[in-house]
Design a binder for these strands. Structure first.
Length: 276
DNA sequence: ACTGTCTGTGCTT
DNA sequence: AAGCACAGACAGT
């Protein structure tokens, strides 16, 4: 699961970034080098080469980005500030306030690309690729490896994509189980969507394996009974196929409806789930 | 070519 | 004022 000390610059940077995402903010360089197995000077150079920034700047960006997201949904601004890891409201305003409303140039300097890990594996329903941030799974896809790779590059154009089969062993084995129509432990997700999409996707996770719902039923279950069409669109926009089981939603007349990755795969998945 | 040590400078707290 | 991050210079492999 946890890999040996990273040896390439990109791997070292990825390891350090992951630590700071877990810590939700900047960490002392001396803490970071424990995980990277190199000197502080080398880590500084790696960050400069790979991300065109510094460890500290990256960590601050993690914290301010978190603050930005929390502020969006917070009832009390001060709660959001403390949740985001600032020691005081004053510290927040001094460090982050300008950054939250920063110029495009500052944003480019202070918000480096994300490092995303990916892996790919064969399953019963075809080749499956998965992309993960430290917070959780971002994207899954089914199909030809080359096409999947292209798709991911388009989906995350600013990301540094790093293949790491070792770090994703658990995720990939869960996907293999799911693709076989069997159950798997819940995977942490890190997906972005509108509020409506989020409601649909979380409703989909409630559909038991081997079962199906109609688009209209899902619409009712989220208190939007007239939104069956919008539900179908949200299913089509599901970034984490198989994990969020959009394949379990069918039309009221019993036909399968659509599936982003191909109707054959949807049929295949449902058959495997129906016959355990 | 890549990496670590030493070091001066300048931020941050 | 103290501590730390940063990056240049240099040397070892």
């Amino acid at each position: 699961m946890t890999s040996v000390p990273p040896t390439t610059p990109v791997q070292r940077v990825a390891a350090a970034c992951r630590l700071m995402h877990e810590a939700q903010g900047p960490l002392p360089v001396n803490t970071l080098i424990a995980a990277t197995g190199c000197s502080s000077r080398q880590l500084q150079r790696d960050f400069a080469d790979v991300l065109d920034t510094t460890p500290r700047t990256y960590g601050r960006s993690v914290r301010t980005t978190l603050a930005r997201h929390r502020l969006a949904g917070a009832t009390r601004v001060t709660d959001a500030i403390y949740d985001a890891g600032y020691g005081s409201v004053r510290a927040f305003y001094e460090e982050a306030a300008q950054r939250l409303g920063m110029s495009p140039r500052d944003y480019a300097n202070g918000a480096p690309h994300h490092v995303l890990l990916w892996s790919i594996t064969d399953t019963d329903i075809g080749t499956v690729m998965a992309v993960a941030a430290p917070q959780g799974l971002c994207s899954t896809g089914i199909g030809e490896p080359a096409e999947l790779m292209e798709r991911v590059k388009r989906e995350f154009p600013a990301a540094i994509l790093l293949r790491d089969d070792g770090a994703m062993t658990d995720v990939m084995s869960a996907l293999v189980h799911l693709a076989a129509g069997r159950s798997a432990p819940d995977l942490p997700l890190h997906v972005q969507g509108t509020a409506f999409q989020a409601r649909v996707w979380s409703a989909l996770k409630e559909i038991p394996e081997g079962d199906t719902r109609t688009y209209a039923e899902v619409a009712q279950s989220i208190n939007a009974p007239s939104s069956a069409r919008a539900v179908a669109n949200a299913c089509g926009a599901n970034p984490t196929a198989i994990v969020v089981p959009c394949h379990r939603v069918v039309r009221t007349d019993g036909s399968l409806g659509g599936y982003y990755w191909g109707i054959e795969i949807k049929r295949d998945l449902l058959q495997r789930e129906a016959t355990p």
